[in-house]
């Protein structure tokens, strides 16, 4: 077993356990902190996959922004009766567990039948990936449309979210 494999196994196990904590913790702040752990594990995986740009993006976007927003929302909506006591799950918990296990085994079985399932990474120079990505994002035969659509999507999200969350006059009193 190579050191890289050890690092991978450690990361994968830690982040999967953290993910299980995310969906089972009653205390939502704890859940959010475990979510941060999982997301960090995914960032480590991106490094192992030689995509360091996505690894830092993962940390900047998910840990730096999305997780913070989640914690903010948890604190803005914290209800005394809601998080410390009471059951975190709804009535369908058994069904949910069953379907999660089903989806997992389905995915593994389906992918297991694929010829390249246990492929080994080809030796390749990945250092130019960021420049290549930037070029592709702004090229007419690349993803320039997706680039602009992403911008529109985020603009829409910003406008929509502010519209939804901004208190109307009637609510203020």
């Amino acid at each position: 077993m190579t050191p890289m494999q050890l690092i991978f196994i450690f990361t994968a196990v830690a982040s999967t356990v953290a993910a299980i904590m995310v969906v089972t913790r009653r205390n939502m702040v704890h859940a959010a902190l475990f979510l941060v752990m999982t997301l960090f594990g995914v960032a480590v995986a991106f490094v192992l996959l030689e995509a360091p740009f996505l690894a830092v993006v993962q940390v900047v976007v998910y840990i730096g922004a999305i997780a913070i927003l989640m914690i903010f929302a948890v604190m803005l909506t914290r209800n005394v009766t809601d998080d410390e006591s009471g059951h975190p799950f709804n009535a369908n918990v058994r069904l949910a567990l069953l379907s999660a296990v089903f989806v997992f085994s389905l995915l593994v079985v389906t992918l297991g039948g694929w010829a390249q399932f246990s492929a080994i990474a080809p030796f390749a120079n990945t250092s130019g990936a960021v420049a290549q990505l930037g070029e592709a994002l702004a090229a007419a035969d690349g993803y320039v449309l997706a680039f602009e659509v992403a911008s529109m999507l985020l603009l829409g999200a910003l406008v929509g979210a502010i519209f939804v969350v901004w208190p109307r006059q009637a609510e203020n009193d």
Binding site: V29, L33, V36, P52, F53, V56, V57, V59, V60, I63, G64, A65, A67, I68, I71, M75, S127, V130
Partner: peptide, 25 residues
């Protein structure tokens, strides 16, 4: 030498935000 060093600095800074939030909470 990282080829994403500038973003790395930004990424590392976001842990500082998390530390503040954790300390306060």
């Amino acid at each position: 030498k990282l080829n994403v060093a500038v973003l790395y600095i930004a990424a590392v800074g976001s842990f500082g935000v998390l530390a503040v939030l954790m300390a306060g909470w």
